[in-house]
Structures are given as C-alpha cells and as structure tokens.
C-alpha cells in the first residue's frame, strides 16, 4: 500500500520554529543583560567623578554639580523598614488566618480582597495617600505617636503628615499582598503529619502554629518578607506623592524625606547636565543592584523551602 495522500512538505517549518523561539528566549535574556550594561555605562561619569564618596555624601546640589546619594539611600531604607515593620505582622496574621485559623467560608472572599489590594495601581495609592492617608496621619497618627513616644527624637518635630511615616505606611499596605500570599502558600505546605503530631500531644491551635508551622516555614516566610522588601525599595509613584521629596536626612519620621526611586522620578527629566543625569543613573544602578540581590536571596530561600517541603512529603 503506497501513500497516495498529497501531503505538503515544508522542510524548514520545524527548524525555523525552533530557532525563532530560541532567538526570542535569548532576546529576553539579552535585553536584561543590556539593561544592566546600559545603566552601568550611563553612570560612568558619576562613578568616575565621585567614586565611593557618592554613597556617603549628603550633598545633592545640581547648581554646583556636587552629588551624593546618602539622603536617598537613607530614605529608601528607612521607609522600607517602616513598611516591613508594619506589614510583616499584618501579613503573617492574614496568612495564618487564611490558612489555619479562619472559618472556611471567610477564606476565599478574604483572599480575593487581599488580591484586589495587589491589583490597585501605584498612582491610585498615591492619590489616596495625598488626600486621605496624609491628613489622617497628620491629625491622628502623628499626635498619638508624639504623645506616647515623644521622648524619642524619631517622634519629635512638626507634624506635616507628608513625610517618611506616611511613605512607610503606604508601602506597607502595598507589600502586604506579596508577603501574605507567599506566606500562605508556605503554610499550606507544612505537612499535615507534623500538624497532627502537635495536636496529638494536646497542643492548642495557636501552640501548633507557634511550635510547628512558624519554625517549619521559617525560610519560606523569610523569603516572602525579603521579596516584599524588594518591592518596597523599588516602589516609586505612591512614595513620591506622599514623602515630601526633600533631600535631607532628618531623624524625625514626621519630616519630609526622599528615596532613590522618587528622586529619579522627580528630577530625571530636568537633569540638564550630563553629570546630573549620570548621578541619577547611578542611583538607578544602585537600586537595581540592591533589588537584584534581594530578589535572588529571596528566591533562593523560597526555593530551598519548597525543596524541603517536597522532601518531607515524599
């Protein structure tokens, strides 16, 4: 029996398909490498001019062309730390409530709402921040903190509302979905046998969480927190809109500040001289390196946790 079907032969179809998908995959890889390269290349004038001094100098003066990034680094780190401080307990609470403590009927709707939080665009957080959060912080939060902890310089000074504290609060809201969703996944991977073991020796649900789930999921939760920290460090719009954009290092959390991303957002299109632009590029490069390092660390932690969870299951 011979093959009498008039098949069409397109010999180049498969080789072309394979090579074009390969090309596009490497294209994505290449673009990412190019990103690091370009940022590096464009920051060269600033790196050559200021060296390491760039990261320790607090002067930021476009007129005299003297640039130091310390106020921005300080602002980025402090605002992110505030965010982590608020977001971690809240996210863990949400994650535990969603995976272990809450009644079944509430879990899905609650989870949906938390996911919505992640879908809101940054600029809308900023808008809400300016007109709702900042007045609230000025009227209630800052007076309260000043009354309770006013003995410490962190909580002294004029209360503008606009400033480091508001930036930290808004960041915390924005990173809660990241931390809580990964933590929830981590908690759901705690082997049932371990949990049952704790119940079998008479532990209450909370004791089981404290003695089994939290220690078991530690590396995964830590990864989630670092991933959240990465988000907070790089967040731009909402922070820019509420932090006040003043390149000073003030001890008080009530005072306006500036972050690495917000200074780029504010000044990049006005950077007329090449050194000015290069300095902003270098801040971008530093931000890139920082977030890359944190992301890689976080992913390694989460991966190692998944590896462990798979191991105990099998």
């Amino acid at each position: 029996m011979t093959n009498e079907i008039p098949f069409k032969k397109i010999w180049w179809e498969d080789p072309l398909f394979k090579s074009s998908t390969a090309f596009l995959a490497w294209f994505v890889f290449g673009l990412s490498v190019l990103l690091v390269f370009i940022l590096g290349k464009f920051s060269l004038p600033s790196i050559a001019q200021f060296g390491l001094h760039f990261f320790s100098s607090t002067e930021w003066n476009p007129v005299t062309e003297n640039f130091g990034a310390l106020p921005f680094i300080y602002g980025t780190i402090v605002s992110s730390l505030i965010a982590i401080l608020i977001a971690v307990p809240l996210s863990l609470g949400v994650a535990l409530y969603l995976s272990e403590l809450g009644p079944m009927w509430i879990r899905n709707p609650l989870n949906f709402l938390i996911e919505l939080l992640a879908a809101i665009p940054s600029v809308i957080y900023g808008l809400w921040g300016i007109f709702v959060l900042v007045p609230f912080v000025r009227k209630y939060v800052e007076p309260f903190l000043s009354a309770c902890f006013g003995f410490h310089p962190l909580f002294q000074g004029p209360m503008y509302g606009i400033g480091m504290l508001s930036a930290g609060i808004i960041l915390s809201i924005m990173i809660i979905p990241t931390i809580s969703s990964i933590s929830r996944e981590v908690f759901s991977l705690v082997p049932a046998s371990l949990k049952e073991g704790a119940f079998a020796i008479g532990a209450t649900r909370w004791e089981m969480i404290r003695l089994v789930m939290l220690p078991y999921g530690r590396s995964g939760v830590l990864g989630a927190v670092i991933l959240g920290l990465g988000r907070a460090l790089g967040e731009t719009m909402a922070v820019t809109m509420v932090i006040g954009n003043r390149p000073d290092i003030a001890i008080s959390l009530f005072a306006p500040a500036h972050t690495m991303s917000s200074v780029i957002a504010n000044e990049f299109s006005e950077a007329t001289t090449s050194l000015y632009a290069a300095s902003l590029m270098e801040i971008g490069l530093a931000l890139l390196v920082l977030t890359l390092a944190l992301n890689i660390l976080a992913r390694m932690l989460v991966w190692s946790f998944y590896g462990k969870a798979k191991g105990t299951r099998a």
């Binding site: 994505v28 890889f29 790089g234 991303s261 590029m281 931000l287 890359l292 992301n295």
Partner: peptide, 19 residues
C-alpha cells in the same frame, strides 16, 4: 532571568527605555 526581571523596579525600566 524572568523572575529577576519581574523584581526590577519599574522606574529602572523607565530609565532603561529612556537611554
């Protein structure tokens, strides 16, 4: 690469596209 890319701050992407 993709995972790392998704963690890069959007402002940095903007600066990259600008350059």
């Amino acid at each position: 690469t993709a995972d790392v890319l998704s963690g890069i701050p959007s402002i940095v992407i903007g600066v990259f596209a600008y350059s």
